[in-house]
């Protein structure tokens, strides 16, 4: 998907530059773009490396586990027909907590495990959709990259947008769950 988008962008840029007589600018854009990419990585690396370390402490000390226990009752409401299936709920818990803590490295493997378990138990469909929506709307407590980027482009209050961002994430999640509950109600056990 992204490969096609990327190639289209480059080809479209070339055609447009040709029409607008901006080939010279296009050549400069290649140099400027690569330069900027390296700068962004340098700008945000410090914060991301620091938070990765912090989150590892959270994982090793059992903080992440404590949060998953808090999430359990909510999960039983969201996945009613998985309520007693620990083999499904456990990876879902790890996946969600990792997402919330911004550990996308840890989130993907546990997410795939949850999907596999759901398939094994023939509980795909509505459950899967709810789970995917949760992953897409991921509420992050500390969105390191975003905050570091804001700070380095001169923001006075890089953390300021967080509450509004959390609220927007929650709206995404609620809309998604509502849509699934309305439209997939009768199709839950079809798979």
């Amino acid at each position: 998907m992204i490969g096609k988008v990327w190639a289209t962008m480059l080809i479209a840029s070339f055609l447009c530059a040709l029409i607008n007589n901006k080939i010279n600018e296009l050549g400069n854009a290649i140099l400027e773009g690569t330069d900027q990419a390296i700068n962004i990585i340098l700008m945000t690396s410090g914060a991301i490396i620091f938070w990765s370390g912090m989150m590892k402490i959270a994982q090793d000390s059992g903080f992440t586990g404590a949060i998953s226990r808090l999430l359990f009752p909510i999960l039983q409401v969201l996945f009613p027909n998985c309520a007693k299936k620990q083999n499904i709920l456990n990876p879902i818990c790890i996946n969600l907590v990792s997402n919330i803590m911004g550990l996308s490295n840890a989130a993907t493997p546990s997410g795939i495990k949850a999907m596999k378990e759901m398939k094994k138990e023939k509980l795909l469909s509505a459950n899967t959709l709810v789970f995917l929506i949760m992953n897409m709307s991921c509420v992050q407590i500390a969105p390191t990259f975003l905050v570091a980027l804001r700070k380095n482009f001169g923001s006075n209050k890089p953390y300021e947008i967080l509450p509004k961002m959390w609220a927007t994430s929650i709206i995404f999640l609620l809309t998604g769950i509502l849509l699934i509950k309305i439209f997939k109600k009768n199709k839950i056990d079809r798979q």
């Binding site: 990327w6 962008m9 840029s13 530059a17 607008n20 296009l26 400069n28 773009g33 690569t34």
Partner: peptide
Amino acid sequence: IALITAVTMFKFSG
């Protein structure tokens, strides 16, 4: 690097 360069080219070319 791939994507930021593409975005910059996209912008500069109009």
